[in-house]
Design a protein around this nucleic acid. Structure first.
Length: 216
DNA sequence: AGTGCGATTGACT
DNA sequence: GTCAATCGCACTA
């Protein structure tokens, strides 16, 4: 078995010496909008047999009760049930017949609320992200909700996973470094309740999705 | 049982 | 800039 030894010094984003710890449920705000802000700078970690893939959250959107753009606007259904689990559970939605999207439930059990994770700054397992995504370009690995899910190998199989449970295959971790200033804007790609300011992102971060004006 | 469409992406003019 | 891909699900009947 031949091994290729990387001789150059890895870039900061490729080092796996960062430290992160699984967030406990009682550390998560009990409010979807607060959670959407809180999650900026935190990590999403995916554990597989092959190893760990992780990224730093740089963009989120909140979906609330009474919000026409929310998947649970018309009530609880077979598909959206995970959005009614206690805060910190995964809701994975299959969209356009091609992409999965990762959300984190944001309220107490029985109340609907979700935070869509829209973009990650790759932190660990970058070679695995490249293989899953079929591109080398660091900026395109997890910039956008569909890309992010693909990079982490997330499918409906992860729907309902408790992101705070010990040993879960997918979890939320503490920040690996200081979080920058948080910007706000309207949400991307929706048509109903489109004027509401419920998108949050780390200002100036190159891994945030959307046009230039929505990243600064 | 049939239908319309969506919290996107990548390829192409 | 435009546009097709491609599927499950919720809604109508």
């Amino acid at each position: 078995m031949a091994h290729v030894i990387e001789e150059r010094t890895p870039k900061m984003s490729e080092r796996s010496e960062f430290r992160t710890r699984r967030l406990r449920r009682n550390e998560l705000p009990v409010d979807t909008v607060e959670l959407a802000r809180y999650l900026i700078g935190k990590t999403v970690v995916r554990e597989t047999k092959r190893g760990r893939v992780a990224g730093r959250i740089v963009e989120t959107e909140a979906y609330l009760m009474g919000d026409k753009a929310a998947h649970f606007y018309r009530g609880r259904t077979k598909r959206n049930g995970s959005l009614y689990l206690d805060r910190g559970h995964a809701y994975v939605y299959f969209c356009y017949g091609t992409h999965f999207m990762l959300n984190v439930s944001g309220e107490r059990a029985g109340v609907g609320g979700g935070v869509l994770i829209r973009a990650l700054e790759p932190v660990e397992g970058i070679e695995w992200m490249r293989r899953r995504r079929g591109t080398r370009k660091l900026q395109d690995l997890a910039r956008g909700p569909g890309r992010l899910a693909e990079a982490l190998g997330i499918t409906r199989g992860q729907d309902g996973v408790d992101l705070t449970a010990a040993g879960s295959e997918l979890w939320l971790g503490t920040a690996t470094r200081a979080t920058g200033e948080i910007g706000e804007s309207v949400r991307i790609g929706i048509t109903k309740d489109a004027q509401r300011v419920l998108r949050f992102y780390e200002r100036g971060n190159e891994f945030v999705s959307g046009p230039k004006g929505m990243r600064e």
